[in-house]
């Protein structure tokens, strides 16, 4: 094995209680994602991929099992510590972009840096730099709603990258885009991967999952396939 593990799931389970029924959203999942990998987690709705994403992104903690992120066990940490880890380690790309409508692009991209205490000037410089590298250098003062969907998703990619996190976590990043702009976004992700970023892509769409090196397929909260994308049969 080459690189060090970044994400380690050791028999991770997440249960939700709905009345008397127990929903096993994640059922003893064990997997590892190493630094520099591009992994797609695929599954139909209800397969547990959103639960997986929430746990990987430190938005939620497992009911049982152990989640180790970059050598650190996350399960026992408090809310504030989790917020810190999200801020430092994870760059989120959401299906609905989740940009702040009242803030301009630069301010949107600055948010993660604001919470990690980067001084204003430095923050501004880095936000402008990342936005420029994604071709949005001329729209720094625009509001998100003045942009097309593809452009908005590029802003959220910029926001994910600006803190230089160990992991880029993309949740259906093309879900709200037409196929052409979707492909553009995916090619950005591939470029980021080739530059050395670790990317975990959550999707229900097999054709998008094929863009990744490796596919983890979930069904009913369990891993049913974990291997190179060419062997996934999709």
């Amino acid at each position: 094995m080459d690189a060090k593990p970044l994400i380690e799931f050791r028999s991770v389970s997440k249960y939700y209680y709905m009345g008397d029924n127990v929903v096993r959203a994640a059922d003893r999942i064990t997997m590892t994602v190493r630094h520099g990998e591009f992994v797609a987690i695929v599954g139909q709705s209800g397969s547990g991929k959103s639960t997986c994403m929430n746990i990987i992104g430190c938005l939620d903690v497992p009911t049982s099992g152990e989640y180790i992120l970059d050598g650190r066990s996350v399960g026992e940490l408090g809310k504030n510590k989790l917020a810190e880890i999200r801020n430092e380690m994870v760059g989120f790309i959401f299906q609905q972009y989740n940009l702040l409508p009242k803030a301009n692009l630069r301010e949107n991209v600055e948010i993660p840096l604001m919470y990690s205490g980067v001084p204003k000037g430095e923050r501004r410089r880095r936000a402008v730099e990342v936005l420029t590298s994604l071709g949005l250098g001329d729209k720094l003062r625009n509001r998100p709603n003045q942009l097309s969907g593809g452009q908005q998703q590029r802003v959220s990619i910029a926001r994910a990258l600006v803190g230089n996190p160990a992991l880029i976590l993309a949740d259906e990043p093309t879900g709200a885009l037409d196929s052409k702009t979707g492909r553009e976004v995916l090619s950005i992700l591939r470029r980021l991967h080739s530059e050395g970023h670790t990317i975990v892509l959550i999707t229900h769409d097999g054709s998008i999952a094929r863009m990744a090196q490796r596919i983890v397929r979930l069904e009913d909260g369990r891993v049913v396939f974990d291997g190179p994308s060419e062997e996934a049969g999709i």
Binding site: G57, N80, R86, N87, E88, I111, Y115
Partner: peptide, 16 residues
Amino acid sequence: TREIGIRKALGAKERY
């Protein structure tokens, strides 16, 4: 609510 969710996802602690 959504703005608060975004801010928290991006690392805002409760006290912020």
